[in-house]
Design a protein around this nucleic acid. Sequence first.
DNA 1: CTTTCGGATTTAAACCTTTAAATCCGACAG
DNA 2: CTGTCGGATTTAAAGGTTTAAATCCGAAAG
Lengths: 345, 345
Amino acid sequence: MSTIIEVAKRASVSIATVSNVIRGTRRVSPELRTRVQNAIRELDYYPNAIARSLKVKQTRMLGLVLPDITNPFFPGIIRGAEDAAFERDYFLVAANTDDQIGRERRIVSALRSYRVDGILLISALGNDTSHIRQTIASGVSVVCLDRSIPGITTDSVFLDNVRGGRECVRHLIQSGHRKIAIVTGQLKAQNARERLQGYTEALGEADISPDKSLILEGDYRYDSGYRLGKQLMKSRVKATAVFVCNGVMTLGVLQAFEELGIKCPDDIAVATFDDLTLDNSFHSHLTAVVQPSYDMGARAAAMLMDRIEGKLAGDPVIVRIVPTLVIRDSTRPQRHLPNHRRVGA
Amino acid sequence: MSTIIEVAKRASVSIATVSNVIRGTRRVSPELRTRVQNAIRELDYYPNAIARSLKVKQTRMLGLVLPDITNPFFPGIIRGAEDAAFERDYFLVAANTDDQIGRERRIVSALRSYRVDGILLISALGNDTSHIRQTIASGVSVVCLDRSIPGITTDSVFLDNVRGGRECVRHLIQSGHRKIAIVTGQLKAQNARERLQGYTEALGEADISPDKSLILEGDYRYDSGYRLGKQLMKSRVKATAVFVCNGVMTLGVLQAFEELGIKCPDDIAVATFDDLTLDNSFHSHLTAVVQPSYDMGARAAAMLMDRIEGKLAGDPVIVRIVPTLVIRDSTRPQRHLPNHRRVGA
DNA sequence: CTTTCGGATTTAAACCTTTAAATCCGACAG
DNA sequence: CTGTCGGATTTAAAGGTTTAAATCCGAAAG
């Protein structure tokens, strides 16, 4: 792999001149310019970004730390972030934590060694946040995405979870439900607590007193949805609707229902967080609080790059994204419910 | 951000000694070792991987070039690759091409500048492969994954597509179908041609002469599935089964069927490539040729790292992964078919 | 007491750029 | 003809590591 020096030799100019034609830093006469360009082509020369980074102290790489790319909620986010980055000539270095704080530490420390210009962080849940605190303190820009980190204030892009939960449950109530169950994520995660809060608020507005046995704490994973779906149907208290706080758990719940021979929405209405939809079509029967994941990713990446480049200065900015409630068949009014009314989609 | 020099000063040792304790390159006396370790901790020092890479000429970064992370087939692959990489202390730099050769060129050239140690390539389809050829020629290890590149032989991990297609169509035939349609990917893609070949072979075995009007060329995207699904049902020739060559197109086909009021499997049997299943449960009714995507990713990454580290030398190795046919409800024998028999799952 | 040996430690060059500062050179003014 | 000016080009230092080679030092051998 050839170097700038070889290019310079072949073009009979100085290294500096080569650098100048590559980066356009200074004018160079047309003839030297073409000599250099020819040499570059002939040698199949690719500027060494490593050497450059060492000198200019920036890598144009962004770290992306996320729980698990295999969870269908994340690819959209990633894609949004990547497109935003690519457009501004940054690259993404991604790694999965599986929500294990230990892995997160290891990944973050590797990213710091790599000297990424900034980090996009969908944090693993956990109390030990010292590595993040230190990273920020050391001057690396960090933007939190989707999940907040207890005790840390930094640029962030979150969904308005309270609102999402509230609107969804309001809709269920308007459809005539009063026994509404909720399957939450781990309540140590703030977004899980917020969705629950939305649920509680909506019930409060309708003077429905919350029933402890209808609040089921899962962990955002398939298995917990499955387990809690079964549990729910075996409970004494009969729910007529269930609000599941993320997509994969909903799949679990639906599977449980199917095995029990329970039909949605006739036996029970189901609403979910996250859209399982591909191209807005399949699963088109599920009422969902839809998060604009692509936009969230793009927005967060843009913020990060702005911060890195100094286009954004001053106090941390926290952006709250508003979700959309998409009403579909799975909450279609059930005939046997008392005061149901039609709700426009 | 402190440097090895500051650490050395604080510990009153030479730079070399610091380097030696960090990397364990040479023995250093216990006392110096602890002095150095303390200094590192006190200064919150992270070795500069950039500087190191410059010197040692390796970055421990792997490029991952893929069409679109948003296509549910890919996250599994990526995760497999990433886990394999992480385990051996490599990181992944990923970028989406959207199957545009122009983007692919740009990405590959950026990766070459970054001096990634190797590239995992799920190539965009296109005739212009010069950038790949050059990259390989320049000594960068490249492993092709899932898709071959016309005219280029390099380490690769592919699915045995012919076999997948053949077994799937055999199964349809055994279930009593003779009018079997196929929805393929772009036939300029080799894997699409191979799947079609499997289809043709299976028909041949059963002395069924292929009917041109039952071969529908799509492009592996949702819309084409939807369009061809409609087209299929409006065609004069009535198919009793359809084999769709990838997951997202199947979703399109199913959507088309739903809109036309056509029931699967009673009106038409459906088999698909790729599993849309999340945790082996949802969509559990679709008969599918399942690709072990995680393993494919892991295998390819391992090969790449072996090649980089010289553990694998000599001619390019091509691995063919065997898919599994999972038989489910969507191809359950239809009562009105003549010679159907039960097929064990 | 002087050598010799070997392990621990240090020195210094190299990796490939960028960029401030120095140099060069031709044109123009005096 | 000399001096000045300004733009084009070159020189050389710096960036943070690794590592071969050099040095140091104490112990063992003579």
